[in-house]
Amino acid sequence: MTSNLTNESARVAAMFRKMLVIRAFEEAAGENFFAGYVRGSVHQYIGEESIAVGICENLRDDDYLTSNHRGHGHSIAKGADPRAMMLELFGKVGGTSDGKGGSMHIADFSVGMLGANGVIADGCTISVGAAQAVKLLGQDRIVVNFIGDGGINRGPFMEALNWAKVYELPVLFVCENNQIAATTTTRLVTAGEGIARRAESFDVPAVTIDGNDLFTVDGTAARVISEIRNGSGPQLIQAMTYRLRGHFAHDDAGYREPGEAEAALEHEPIRRTESWLCENGLSQDELDAMRAEVTAEIAGYVDDAMQADWPDPSLAFTDVQDVGAPNMPGAIS
């Protein structure tokens, strides 16, 4: 990369690279789902990368993060190893959970990533509890919970908002509002004005931003996270975005209006960030080289995942519990 970049351009380029890693990871996850190597459900984060990257850029390694079913981007942005994540998607040894969890249960406790989650809005209650532990232990970590617009109609979200405010906990709720809950248009099943108003009704400050604008996400996160770390109590960021793919890889999103996704491409975050970088010191050649490097990196992880060993079946019976742990098959008559 050119050495005469401003600090600002270099910082944005680093964030952009992370966004490219997420995009390439998700494309590879989808391809290998259709190729039959990745089983189950793969919920891609394509089109929303600026939110995870812009938020996590402002976190420390020891801050906590809880995620949801669409968690690959959050995990990578928080610092989880994408190679281990790819191995996990393939169900192989060396995956983040050695194949026990898969796509919806990626976690990396070494970077405070307390887990993706297959149950909508359950991360909300886990987050407020983690924040209570942080206070009890006298730490200055904060907890970020990523939730989607579909999750705001579950009780635990509203319970957790109330709880976070009652105890003035250091929690940042980030609602990625991609406007569709699985296959149902969220506003058709949501009364009132939505998430920001719900947060405000609990006296939790809420701000609505363009989530596809990396600079807005980064700037808002910098301010809000600093306030929370300095004792503001919980806050909420509603980041408006658009899910460029279906709910999961095998959803062709036929419920969309014709041309809707194509029109959305114009506002998608990678294109927008790339334009800014072009105008602020990076040449198209440099950007293309970066993209090629990231693509090769992810392709390498896919190769590694193809080659990696399957877990020994005995691993199915470990890490259940200490007291009353299961017997290995054949151990009892």
Binding site: L114, T125, I126, G129, A130, A131, L136, P156, E159, N162
Partner: peptide, 22 residues
């Protein structure tokens, strides 16, 4: 800790607090 009548969060917060070292 006296809590609101929020059973989901009583249990869920305990999970989070246990994951975070208490």
């Amino acid at each position: 800790v006296d809590t609101p009548i929020s059973e989901s969060t009583i249990m869920g917060a305990a999970v989070g607090a246990a994951l975070a070292g208490t």
